[in-house]
């Protein structure tokens, strides 16, 4: 394993660390590395780093490694970790913040999962609501797996669960404006 020179790494990570602290409202130094978060995390089995290890990377300023991890994308935002942390660290919020920053920096380890959220929001922006059929079709087409889950389609249509046309709200201007206003304030959507 490569040896990390900690002082240089710390200096390099400062800028992003400051962003994480500000945007998440979490001081990583509060974490005492007990691992309770990771012990209960329902997705830990699939992660490349446990949530505690992400906290450790942040504590040491090893931000690139944290931002490039799959963990931050696999996190299901279930809040189990934050609910049980003995130091009241809101880890779920740290995960969320790292994802947002990773996306801003264009370093997205799980492109497909990110794609889903993009399409989701696009649907919201265009229609005011999510058009689930459109979302699933789009996701599977853009995600290069056009037949995935396709077998649910017919029965869903039959059960009245998917409508072929998007639900839109009459005055979608208001929602479009919300997106525009968030962009104006620096939101990268």
């Amino acid at each position: 394993m490569e040896r990390i020179e900690l002082t240089a790494a710390w200096a390099k990570g400062q800028e992003v660390l400051a962003e994480v602290t500000k945007e998440s409202g979490v001081r990583a130094s509060k974490c005492y590395q007990c691992g309770k978060c990771s012990a209960g995390c329902p997705v830990a089995f699939a992660m490349d780093k446990t949530p505690r290890e992400i906290m450790r990377l942040v504590q040491l300023g090893l931000m690139d490694e944290a931002l490039q991890s799959h963990t931050i994308w696999l996190c299901a935002s279930c809040d189990t970790c934050s609910t049980r942390c003995p130091r009241e660290v809101d880890i779920a919020r740290v995960m969320e913040t790292l994802r947002i920053i990773a996306k801003r920096k264009g370093s997205v380890a799980e492109k497909k999962m990110d794609l889903f959220h993009d399409l989701f929001l696009k649907s919201v922006e265009n229609n005011g609501r999510v058009h689930e059929l459109g979302l699933i079709l789009g996701f599977n087409i853009y995600g290069m797996q056009p037949l995935k889950d396709a077998h649910f389609g017919p029965s869903m249509l039959l059960k009245g669960k998917l409508s072929p046309l998007p639900h839109t709200i009459k005055d979608n201007g208001e929602v479009k404006k919300i997106f525009a206003n968030v962009r104006k304030r620096g939101g990268k959507l």
Binding site: Q33, G35, K36, A39, G40, C41, A44, F45, T50, R52
Partner: peptide
Amino acid sequence: VWGEDTLLGRPV
């Protein structure tokens, strides 16, 4: 019992 072996970095 669900824990993490933090020395291994793995859920146990």
